[in-house]
Amino acid sequence: MEPLKPFTGSIVAIPINDTDTDQIIPARYLKVTDKAGLGAAVFSNWRFNGDGSPKPDFVLNKPEYQGAQVLVGGHNFGCGSSREHAPWALMGAGFKAVISTYFADIFKGNSLKNGLLPIVVDEETHRQLISLAEEDPNTQVSIDLAAQTVTLPDGRKVEFPIDGFSKECLLQGVDQLGYLMNLEDGIAAYESHHSPRVSTLV
């Protein structure tokens, strides 16, 4: 994973409450055995008609919003299924951060493990960002994880929360598996007094 450096990117808003992971990436795309190609299917049911033709009114199909790196989503973004294909698809489509007032648990955890930054802001900032994105497709924000800030076009800096551990992992570009592997002694010590409850092989 690459370290997450400060960046400036344009925003696009899909301000729909309770946007579930079945919308972000429908289940029929989950038959893959890798992560490739999922970006092309992001929000597929909202982007395409049944015959595969694009729906011109959907914001991600509008030429002026191509290349957006920051998605402003609705409240409780990413609810539903645990599929990690949701952040993979968003990243595959070029997004580096999602801004909302609230994220579903599993989606948030999955995003943090992949370098897709879930940013929680207050309702007023959220409304402002949606308006800005809808009024001007060239609206850009700057995101600085180290400082935990989103800088709006008017220069206002909005702080966002993130747990310290995830932050360090993202800043250093290390994944959590390596960290867990280094805990071998502790895990072995735990197992020495916690006998397995079942054995699936017998």
Binding site: D34, G164, F165, L180, L183, G186, I187, R197, V198
Partner: peptide, 29 residues
């Protein structure tokens, strides 16, 4: 009873898992 290490101010808890169920869709990667 499943804490390999409790949560601290900076670090999440390390939780031991007794049973892991696996299916074809979310495991290949």
């Amino acid at each position: 009873s499943h804490l390999v290490r409790p949560q601290s101010a900076d670090l999440p808890a390390v939780l031991y898992i007794d049973l892991h169920l696996v299916h074809e869709v979310t495991s290949p990667q």
